[in-house]
């Protein structure tokens, strides 16, 4: 069982940990330098054999520490989850040690996190983009990247030559009607992100 005793013993064993409040699973904040040894000890001594998920959060451009990674582990012995947060100290060149040597499952998750957030995982065996194509210049899940996307050339030159296609921002007028997170009620109701085409204005040609 993952209970208070278990949490206390972990906190005692690993002095660099801090516990965080959480509504569901026990959550620790771990410094990046100790992440590898902590995760390894969890696997070898506490029975957390499965890395179920690894991802990152972008806390926004104004945040002191912009990026942090989140690891979820599952234990077959304890039948429960554990969550580990680690904060990247550098906002311009976010970096995190790779846990793929301990959990091979982390390999693809880390590639995805690199692809979407641009967090560099040191000592990763094959750190390249996994969902977007290799030449893609942006990191889509960063908060400053727009949902519609940014103009970019398509990867295949010969196809572009014939079709004149390119990666264009998706149209955001006339729907989808999305809600903003903040502001007054009239601002936060679902509306088209681009308002150059509404019921009051004609559809631009």
């Amino acid at each position: 069982m993952i209970d208070e005793d278990f949490t206390k013993s972990l906190l005692q064993k690993h002095s660099y940990l801090t516990q965080q409040d959480s509504v569901d699973w026990v959550t620790f904040e771990c410094v990046p330098e100790k992440l590898l040894s902590f995760v390894e000890s969890l696997r070898d001594t506490e029975g957390f054999e499965i890395l179920v998920d690894l991802t990152a959060i972008d806390h926004g451009e104004g945040a002191d520490f912009r990026y942090s990674t989140v690891i979820h582990l599952y234990s077959l012995v304890q039948r429960g989850y554990l969550r580990i947060h680690s904060t990247c100290t550098d906002n311009d060149k976010p970096e995190m040690p790779s846990v793929s040597s301990i959990y091979p499952a982390a390999n693809w998750h880390e590639r995805e996190t690199f692809d979407m957030f641009g967090i560099h995982f040191s000592d990763h065996p094959n750190l390249k983009r996994i969902l977007m194509w290799d030449e893609y210049p942006h990191f889509p899940l960063r908060k400053d990247f727009p949902l519609a996307g940014i103009d970019t050339p398509l990867p295949a030159d010969d196809v572009v030559e014939v079709t004149q296609a390119s990666v264009e921002p998706a149209p955001m007028m006339g729907g989808p009607f999305v809600s903003s997170n903040s502001g007054s009620m009239s601002d936060s109701e679902p509306r088209a992100k681009d308002e150059s085409w509404t019921e009051k204005k004609e559809k631009p040609v």
């Binding site: 969902l131 990247f145 727009p146 990666v167 921002p169």
Partner: peptide, 8 residues
Amino acid sequence: YRSYSVMQ
């Protein structure tokens, strides 16, 4: 799918 990765 009006998003950055989908051709319209």
